[in-house]
């Protein structure tokens, strides 16, 4: 089983329209940029749809169904009711594009699921420090059974 990694064509999706919708979902606020400011949709949507081909058609439906000039977060909830697959495709694609942006990752302090090294014997320090002592001092909590 492999996951396709090549970008998917997105000619049937109006990128400007999707970006306008995404800017309502993730606007500039609280020190974070809007989706359009980091060019998240245009930069990453082909890759996201390459990874998740199943999102493509429901995303087309979502973009067709929502008018950016009238779009609000309340309308997003209505889409959830009307076409759940389209809602899932829209929220997943927009969020995935946004949080793939290195600018956004830097701002939230997320390096990805990185490998780390550690000392497997460091536990001796917190054992020596007495962190477990209260637990041990209370004694066994399991129940003896007959037979």
């Amino acid at each position: 089983m492999t996951t396709p990694t090549s970008p998917a064509p997105t000619a049937d999706i109006d990128i400007h329209r999707l970006t306008a919708l995404a800017d309502v979902m993730l606007p500039a606020a609280h020190g974070m940029p809007a989706v359009s400011e980091v060019k998240a949709v245009e930069s990453y949507l082909p890759q996201v749809l390459g990874w998740r081909k199943d999102l493509h058609q429901p995303l087309v439906r979502a973009v067709d169904a929502l008018d950016p000039s009238l779009f609000s977060i309340d309308r997003l909830s209505a889409l959830h009711e009307e076409d759940e697959d389209a809602y899932v495709a829209l929220t997943t694609a927009v969020a995935a594009c946004y949080y793939l942006s290195p600018v956004v990752r830097e701002l939230i302090g997320y390096p990805g699921q990185a490998a780390k090294t550690y000392d497997p014997f460091a536990y001796t320090e917190w054992v020596a420090e007495g962190l477990l002592d209260p637990v041990v001092d209370r004694g066994p909590i399991w129940r003896e059974v007959p037979g």
Binding site: M25, H30, I73, T91, Q113
Partner: peptide
């Protein structure tokens, strides 16, 4: 990671708009 925060498969809320960034 971030997607699990904003599209939670477990505990948490799905929040969009300005409040999204405050939640994150």
């Amino acid at each position: 990671g971030p997607l699990n925060h904003i599209l939670p498969m477990r505990a948490g809320n799905e929040v969009w708009g300005r409040d999204h960034h405050e939640l994150m």
